[in-house]
């Protein structure tokens, strides 16, 4: 997760989440927000539930940002061998 969100949630670079049922982007993000309610609205808009435009979602070196939130994530992510990445757009000059 981006540094500002790690600070907000009081966590390190990675968090481990238990996801029941199908492991999709939606179920992972739901689990993240349930475990860390202070992150609600910061990754997805509170009202529309859409991805914030300056964040992107990656898994297994693939960009899943434009995929359906209900598509299954790769088995490596579901099993916990690979991370699901929430990446902030780089800001700089």
């Amino acid at each position: 997760m981006p540094a500002n969100l790690r600070t907000l949630a009081g966590v390190g670079r990675e968090v481990e989440l238990r996801v029941d049922g199908n492991v999709t982007q939606r179920s992972v993000l739901d689990a993240l927000e349930a475990e860390y309610p202070m992150l609600r609205g910061t990754v997805r808009d509170s009202v529309t539930k859409k991805r914030r435009p300056l964040l992107r979602f990656y898994a297994c070196e693939e960009d899943h940002s434009e995929d359906s939130l209900d598509d299954p994530l790769p088995a490596e992510v579901a099993s916990g061998r690979e991370p699901y990445l929430i990446v902030g757009a780089i800001a700089g000059g």
């Binding site: 500002n4 969100l5 990754v43």
Partner: peptide, 8 residues
């Protein structure tokens, strides 16, 4: 708030 993360 921040453009990346919305309102807290």
């Amino acid at each position: 708030s921040r453009g990346w993360f919305g309102q807290v």
